[in-house]
Amino acid sequence: MALDQNTINELILCPKRIIQEPSSWKLEKGNYRMGFELESIDKQYFFTAFGRYNAMFNENFSFGLVYFPKHEKGSYEIIRCNGPHGEHRQFPHHIHYHIHKTTQQNIDSGLKEDSTIEITTKYTNFDEAFRFFVKYINVIQGDIDKIFPTQTNLFN
């Protein structure tokens, strides 16, 4: 399946519900990790989402959305919100919070699908990044309120 930009945008923005709640954070080989499953509310699309942060440098974190086409093997990393873990080829000499986005141009050029980044100021720490992420990928508000209530410290 070759994704075009309209489909990619739809995959990011379609309203989603969480069909399997997040596991608790587990430390495995130097990194904390958790994951959950989502589907679009029209049940057309299935996704997994993951969270990671490094045990030594917890500013090195990632929240990502992975799309699994129903009639094809494999998956696409559609979007990933990262902390300031290092430089990126697009912005040498600078370190930013950034978002990796899959683009049709990358796919068509044979590049890794999410090798384009956008620098962001929409979040400035782990907690804000996660809240930005679930909003950005359009998890329905009811699920956000129920599963990720705002008073919860997401690090726990």
Binding site: K29, G30, N31, R33, F50, R52, N54, A55, M56, F57, N60, S62, G64, V66, S75, E77, R80, H85
Partner: peptide, 12 residues
């Protein structure tokens, strides 16, 4: 690398 390579690999 303080386990960053394995963290990155674990995305997929």
């Amino acid at each position: 690398d303080y386990a960053m390579a394995l963290m990155r690999l674990s995305y997929s």
